[in-house]
Design a protein around this nucleic acid. Structure first.
Length: 555
RNA sequence: UGGGGCGUCGCCAAGCGGUAAGGCAUCGGAUUUUGAUUCCGACAUUCCCAGGUUCGAUCCCUGGCGCCCCAGCCA
């Protein structure tokens, strides 16, 4: 059972409802248009859930379209990973897989059309000169001397650009709009540039490539997109988006809407920084469990359901926003609390000897796989004279309020017996290396025969039957809520404790046969899953997805 | 003081002229063989500020203030 909710009302849902009600559209068509120049992250998940969600909820369809107009940055590896991520998140584009590069021929024809209409020209100015001619935010630009070339010359030059006669950067094709527009994207924007590079989807068929602005709206029109949803920074491009739709003989009239991109505290989301973390080996690849990439979150153990819930829960608006990491964390906890079977695992073992328990005796106890859901059944766990408990669950000089194992005090070993600590063994350094205790034989299963209340219950695992494993504890990648804020390099805020690798952890043996996709709760500690890359039989490696809430350690 | 946006609780966010939903966080308290879960309760007389229109304004108007985006042959 998932905990997913219906997305609450937002301005885009309202627009779609209105357009459907008024009959402006019989059905809607949206699209998710990633550029294949990196791996998808949770910010993309917001866009995916929005676009595919709108289509799903209002009976339309959503296309997956690769915005592959810049072969210098794009790779097949990214195309594959993006498809995998979208599928993993739980969305299906069906037959509707497209590439902006599918439309290169049509876009090229439209470029020539613009030249013929005297609305585009070949520019010989260098990039630096163009910048100088562009003007500033407060001053208008100056028209290029090449702006008045004849149609014939423009056409000839553009065709020569296409046929590969010029090197990269030699010339560009620009739209002829308005060099004094207060909107800089209307000051004769570049339409095509020369890039002699093989394209991941169309190979070597082109050496001129359209700019985003010249490709996006027309691609939307070709595909019959009704609602073209992008992030806020494209807002000032909208007049240009519309200029192309007005000027070109396009088959449909899509409309662009913008929403605020996702910002999450304690992480970074920009592709540049993600690339940097990966290429500088600050993290171990795009699927490093500490990254906000979908591949990283998946490997860490986040469920697609929890990410969808998150995307629904954060809402969609137009104001810059920062979502606290606790929202995401709570979404997985909610999902996993409901479905994860429980298990006992000791991460930092401390040997405990039950002195009055018969040597060599072993007892089986029934343990519930889920305390609130009997349908998940029971399992047996073996109890023996020597067990391991968590180092944190013992204290010789306990702080106020501590109700775990402490000399002279009783605690319950979950599902087993009530024990009383009778003494400790220390090494030369004075550290406790072994704890001794006595059990109450009348407390089989964990409840006292006389009904006395035992405040503390701790987890344990039989020393004799325990399975060893490596456990990787992940925490926030950065120690600052906004490492990306500027002035100081974000890498200064890397959290040195973002990964802690524990070896020699002691697990209950039932975990040996765990399904790699199953998330389990190690009671009192958190949710874990096997690392899909590194875990092998007899060399188990667990990843911690998220801790349990802990109101004790907070104090 | 070029243009375009945004401003409702610590963080998100509904609300669209009729008297401030919800989630996360936080703080109590109950139940609990996970200090988990669950459960109850508290948490904006107020919607960036100031005027105005109105019987009535977070929603309309005017004027401020604050923040974000745009000067790639990136998307």
């Amino acid at each position: 059972m998932s905990t997913e909710t219906i997305p609450s009302s937002n301005f885009l849902r309202t627009i779609v409802e209105d357009d459907l009600k008024s009959g402006k559209h019989a059905s809607i068509v949206t699209r998710f248009p990633p550029e294949p120049n990196g791996y998808l992250h949770i910010g993309h998940a917001k866009s995916i859930c929005l676009n595919f969600g709108l289509a799903r909820d209002f009976g339309g369809r959503c296309h997956l379209r690769f915005d592959d107009t810049n072969p210098a940055k794009e790779e097949q590896e990214y195309i594959e990973s993006i498809k995998e991520s979208v599928r993993w998140l739980g969305f299906d584009w069906g037959q509707n897989l497209y590439h902006a590069s599918d439309y290169f021929e049509q876009l090229y024809q439209w470029a020539e059309y613009l030249i013929l209409q005297e609305k585009a020209y070949v520019e010989d100015l260098t990039a630096a000169e163009m910048r100088a001619y562009r003007g500033t935010l407060t001053e208008p630009g100056i028209e290029s001397p090449y702006r008045s070339r004849s149609t014939d010359e423009n056409l000839a030059l553009f065709r020569r650009m296409k046929s590969g006669e010029f090197p990269d950067g030699a010339r560009v094709l620009r739209a002829k709009i308005d060099m004094s527009s207060p909107n800089l994207s209307l000051r004769d924007p570049v339409l095509y540039r020369i890039i002699h590079a093989p394209h991941p989807h169309v190979g070597n068929s082109w050496c001129i490539y359209p700019m985003y602005d010249f490709a996006h709206g027309q691609s939307d029109a070709i595909e019959g997109i009704t609602h073209s949803i992008c992030t806020l920074e494209f807002e000032s491009h909208r007049p240009l988006y519309e200029w192309f739709l007005d000027t070109l003989p396009v088959p449909a009239r899509p409309r662009q809407y913008e929403f605020a991109r996702l910002n999450l505290t304690y992480t970074v989301m920009s592709k540049r920084k993600l690339h940097e973390l990966v290429s500088q080996k600050i993290v171990n690849g795009w699927d490093d469990p500490r990254l906000p990439t979908l591949m990283g979150l998946r490997r860490r153990g986040f469920t697609p359901e929890s990410i969808r819930t998150f995307c629904d829960r954060i809402g969609v608006g137009r104001s810059d926003s920062w979502i606290e990491m606790s929202v995401l964390e709570e979404c997985v906890r909610e999902d996993l609390n409901e479905r994860a079977p429980r298990a006992l695992a000791v991460l930092r073992p401390l040997k405990v000897i039950v002195d009055n328990y018969p040597e060599g005796q072993v007892e089986e106890f029934e343990a519930a796989n889920h305390p609130q859901n009997p349908e998940l059944g029971n399992r047996t766990i073996n109890f023996s004279r020597e067990i391991f408990i968590e180092q944190d669950d013992f204290s010789e000089n306990p702080p106020k309020g501590f109700f775990r194992m402490t000399p002279g005090n009783e605690v319950r070993l979950r599902y087993a017996y009530i024990v009383r600590c009778t003494g400790v063994v220390k090494d030369e350094a004075g550290a406790v290396v072994e704890v001794h205790c006595e059990y109450d034989p009348a407390s089989r299963g964990g409840s006292a025969a006389d009904g006395r209340k035992i405040k503390g219950t701790i987890h344990w695992v039989s020393a004799q039957y325990a399975v060893d494993a490596e456990v990787r504890l992940f925490d926030r990648l950065f120690s600052d809520p906004n490492p990306d804020r500027g002035e100081i390099d974000y890498k200064q805020f890397l959290n040195p404790l973002s990964i802690e690798v524990l070896s020699g952890c002691k697990l209950e043996p039932n975990l040996r046969d765990l399904d790699p996709e199953t998330r389990v709760q190690f009671e009192r500690q958190g949710y874990f899953r096997l690392d899909p890359q590194d875990s092998v039989i007899d060399q188990l490696v667990f990843n911690r997805v998220v801790t349990l809430k802990d109101t004790w350690s907070k104090k």
